[in-house]
Simulated scan of single mutants.
Amino acid sequence: MSKFLVLILLICSSSLSFGKLSDDDYKKLETMVFENLKKDNFIKLNRITRGGSLTSCELEFGNIYRDIRSQSGKPVIVSGSFSLIYMREKSNLGTLLKIVPSVLDVRTEKWTQTYPEYLDIKVNKSSLEKFKITDFKCGSEDRGRCVGYGDPKFDVIKTVTSVIPFNGEVVFSLTKGGYDNSFTLSNLLPQKESIKVREDFNNCMSEIFNEFRKDLERR
Rank of each mutant, 00 (worst) to 15 (best):
S72K: 06
G73P: 13
K74L: 05
P75I: 11
P75V: 11
P75Y: 08
P75F: 12
V76L: 05
I77P: 00
I77Y: 09
V78T: 15
V78G: 04
V78K: 04
G80W: 08
G80V: 11
S81Q: 03
F82R: 12
L84S: 10
I85L: 10
I85C: 05
I85F: 02
I85M: 04
Y86V: 12
Y86D: 02
E89D: 14
E89G: 06
K90T: 07
S91I: 01
G94W: 07
G94I: 09
G94E: 11
T95Q: 15
T95H: 12
T95G: 09
L97D: 04
K98L: 07
I99K: 15
V100H: 04
V100Y: 09
S102L: 02
S102G: 10
V103F: 04
V103T: 11
L104A: 09
L104Y: 10
D105M: 06
R107L: 00
T108V: 05
T108I: 08
T108M: 05
E109F: 00
K110D: 06
K110M: 12
T112V: 12
Q113S: 15
T114Y: 10
T114Q: 15
Y115W: 02
Y115C: 01
P116C: 02
P116K: 00
P116M: 03
E117G: 02
E117Y: 04
L119Y: 09
L119F: 06
I121H: 03
K122I: 00
V123K: 11
V123G: 02
V123I: 15
N124G: 10
N124D: 15
N124E: 14
E129G: 05
E129Y: 12
K130D: 08
F131G: 00
F131M: 01
K132V: 02
K132G: 03
I133S: 08
T134S: 14
D135Y: 02
C138L: 14
G139F: 08
S140K: 11
S140W: 06
S140M: 04
E141I: 05
D142N: 09
D142Y: 01
G144R: 11
R145L: 04
